[in-house]
């Protein structure tokens, strides 16, 4: 059994008004040192899969086909073995 933690964020070239607004709010709170803020999605999947390489290939395919939109988003993920 594997667990996949997936981060999906807007590409650097895509304006993130939500991130900019949060950055502004942080500055108002006194956190002047925040130079950038990007908001994305975090997903956790459990896979009934024994082989780490196959798990990785599957998650990558899931990201490309559904979980992220390659036109606007980038993704990174990490796979860890789960011991029941």
């Amino acid at each position: 059994m594997f667990e996949a933690e997936i981060h999906v964020t807007l590409k650097k070239s895509v304006l993130d008004p939500q991130g900019d607004t949060v950055k502004g709010a942080l500055a108002t709170l006194g956190f002047q040192g925040v130079t950038d803020c990007r908001i994305g999605k975090f997903m956790v999947l459990r896979l009934a899969e024994q082989d780490p390489a196959r798990a990785k290939t599957q998650v990558d395919e899931m990201c490309r086909k559904l979980l992220a939109n390659p036109v606007i988003e980038d993704y990174v993920f990490r796979i860890t073995e789960v011991v029941e």
């Binding site: 304006l15 939500q18 036109v71």
Partner: peptide
């Protein structure tokens, strides 16, 4: 139509939020 690949590009959150 954009997600289906019938049209190019994508539609994002309004800049006003």
């Amino acid at each position: 139509l954009c997600e289906a690949g019938l049209l190019p590009g994508a539609l994002l959150r309004n800049d006003s939020l």
